[in-house]
C-alpha cells in the first residue's frame, strides 16, 4: 500500500478531448496532484469499490475530490453520484459535477442526490482553464475534509 496508490483526483470523463483539455488546465495551473481517469461510470464505480480492473486497490485510499461528467456510457453520472452518496464509506468524498449541461433538471437532480458543486464547462478555453484552476484550488487546497 504505497503512497502512489492514492490518487487525489478521480476524473470521470468519456470525451478524450475534454480529458486532455482538463489535464492541460491542471498543468497550466501547476496542480501536480495525481489524477486517475475513469472513462465511464462503471469504471469509476469499479475504482471506488476496488473491484474489476481495480480489484487489488487499497479500499482505504480515497480521492480528495471526484470530478464527474453526467453524460457517460454504461452507467451515467447521476447514477454514479447516487451510488457514491448512498454508500457510507464514500459519502464524505466531495463530488463536483463538471459537465456541458446547463439544464435545470440536471442541476436540480444533482443537488438532490447530494452533489457538492456543479460547474458548467465553459466553451471558451481561457474560461475553462480558469474554472479548473479555481476548482482545484478550492477542493484540493482550501477545502478541509474529515479524516
Amino acid at each position: 500500500m504505497s503512497e502512489y496508490d492514492c490518487e487525489d483526483i478521480l476524473l470521470v470523463e468519456d470525451n478524450p478531448t475534454d480529458i486532455e483539455l482538463t489535464m492541460r488546465a491542471f498543468r497550466k495551473n501547476n496542480l501536480a496532484n495525481p489524477v486517475i481517469v475513469a472513462e465511464d461510470g462503471s469504471a469509476a464505480l469499479d475504482y471506488l469499490f476496488c473491484r474489476g480492473d481495480y480489484a487489488g486497490r487499497n479500499p482505504a485510499c480515497l480521492p480528495k475530490v471526484i470530478l464527474l461528467d453526467l453524460k457517460l456510457p454504461k452507467v451515467d453520472g447521476l447514477e454514479v453520484l447516487k451510488v457514491i452518496k448512498g454508500e457510507e464509506r464514500l459519502r464524505m468524498t466531495p463530488v463536483v459535477v463538471l459537465t456541458s449541461s446547463r439544464e435545470e433538471q440536471d442541476i436540480v437532480a444533482s443537488y438532490h442526490l447530494g452533489v457538492n458543486s456543479y460547474i458548467v464547462k465553459p466553451i471558451n478555453f481561457d474560461k475553462f482553464v480558469d474554472a479548473v484552476c479555481q476548482l482545484g484550488l478550492y477542493w484540493l487546497v482550501l477545502n478541509q475534509c474529515p479524516r
Partner: peptide, 13 residues
Amino acid sequence: SHDLRAPLRAIEG
C-alpha cells in the same frame, strides 16, 4: 447542450 458543446469546446480549446 451536451454533445454540441463538447466538440465546440474541443475546437476552441
